[in-house]
Simulated scan of single mutants.
Amino acid sequence: MDQPRHAVTARSIAARGIGPAPQQGTALLPPMDMASTYLRDPDNGYSAGSVYGRADNASVRHAERQVALMEQAHAGLLFSSGMAAATAVFTAMAPTHIVAPTIMFWGLRDWLHDIARHGHSITYVDMSNLPAVAGAIRPGETGLVWIETPSNPLWTITDIEAVAGIAHRAGAILCADSTAATPVLTRPLTLGADIVMHSATKYLNGHSDVVAGVLAAARPSALWTRIGALRAQIGSAASPFDAWLLARGLRTLHLRMREHCRTGQFLAEALDGHPAIAEVLYPGLPRHPGHAVARRQMEGGFGGMLSLRLRGGEEAAIAVAAGVELWQRATSFGGVESLIEHRASIEGAGSPCPDDLLRLSAGLEDPDDLLRDLHRALASLG
């Protein structure tokens, strides 16, 4: 499985993997490296490049190289969760001012509420409003702009290239959470972001059996070195088994994303205008406020995530979630199975998520079956 002599697309990289690993031999797939420690050479060196499992593992390196190549990145770092990856960026930075989205993954936003413990200050802003983003920047003080696009759970779109320009003119770096888009649809580093982050638990793995996160950097930097050092010191790298499963999941990412996008678009169009639904939130709908930007920076589709706001409010939303049969009531997203959840219940007190909102992750089941299941549940509202 030598590297091709000529340039290939991200799709080919994902499907074929990258290799071979030193111990792979003639095996088509790289074996799992479960070692916790590695032998020294007689001269006391480590010519193979691995010393100890907390920082060194061939399976981890294999998966993070795959993601880095797909993102057209300088390098990647694989973590034990998406939260571990995201928080590593903030904790590795010297105290600074941060600009972050008003609407974003709740787990990270909740963690950021106490960001002052790391010496940082933070301003939240609507990242789809470029004048507001520019106004939130403090020249000479802002060191990091964090974006998430499409953002969870309202699926708002941020213009990555434009916000990168705003951040860089102020001397700040831009980090983009691209979990919902994946490298198949959007490559933020090619649009000006400095670091891209994924919860690899979601689409990258795609089978609801891994918890992992990954960062990929556009170029070497002191911050990137510090992030890697912190990961080794804290021991927050992904396990070899999770890394191996992730690398396996990446092999079908392009095929899965094609179907997720098709089903997401189909459901959004079919449910738009339903009398029980006040609004369908999906960037693939022409009336979506971020549709034009999404068309420009998302290639091949708009993803498999959509949200529904019910006219009957929280009671109706919970009733619909309870009334489905094919959709499964669980948090997380990006797996082969379709999931539905009342998001405000998950996020709890203080969440900006509307209580009439259902978040849907369109899986790989038959789209018509998924639509019929939702129609039955919606019809039960009377």
Rank of each mutant, 00 (worst) to 15 (best):
F90L: 15
P42N: 05
D33A: 07
P289W: 05
G304Q: 07
G303S: 05
Y282V: 05
R109N: 13
R169M: 11
A35N: 11
L189H: 10
Y46T: 12
D114A: 14
V51N: 00
I18N: 03
G192I: 12
L215E: 05
S128R: 12
D272S: 15
R65N: 12
A316Q: 08
T37P: 00
A292H: 07
A238C: 13
E325C: 06
A73H: 04
A68F: 04
A68I: 12
Q3Y: 05
A292G: 04
A247Q: 13
G235L: 00
T225G: 06
R311H: 14
E269M: 10
R287Y: 04
G206P: 11
P22L: 14
G273W: 02
G53N: 02
A200M: 07
G171C: 06
R359M: 12
T91P: 00
W106R: 10
E314R: 15
R11M: 12
S239L: 08
V211H: 07
H207C: 08
T87E: 08
G382A: 13
R309L: 15
D2P: 14
D33Y: 10
H342C: 14
A362F: 01
H62E: 11
I160R: 02
A317P: 13
R329T: 14
Q265A: 15
N57Q: 01
P367W: 01
F302V: 04
K202W: 12
S208C: 08
E314N: 07
A317H: 10
S121G: 10
M257K: 06
G82T: 03
M70W: 01
N205I: 01
E365L: 01
D373A: 00
G264V: 10
M34W: 02
S36R: 09
A164N: 05
T123G: 01
Y203T: 02
D356R: 05
G171N: 03
A379G: 12
Y38Q: 07
V324W: 09
G19V: 10
R219A: 15
A132V: 05
F241D: 10
P240M: 07
M32K: 15
A316L: 09
G304D: 05
M104F: 03
V280K: 03
I98P: 06
G335H: 11
A94W: 01
D159P: 12
T156W: 04
R54H: 00
P240H: 04
G300E: 07
R169V: 10
D126R: 07
G25N: 06
E341R: 13
L285G: 11
P30N: 11
S307V: 12
K202S: 13
R258G: 11
G323D: 14
E141V: 09
A162C: 08
R65G: 01
G300A: 06
G171R: 05
G382N: 14
A217V: 15
P131R: 02
G192P: 11
L364T: 12
A10H: 00
H291Y: 09
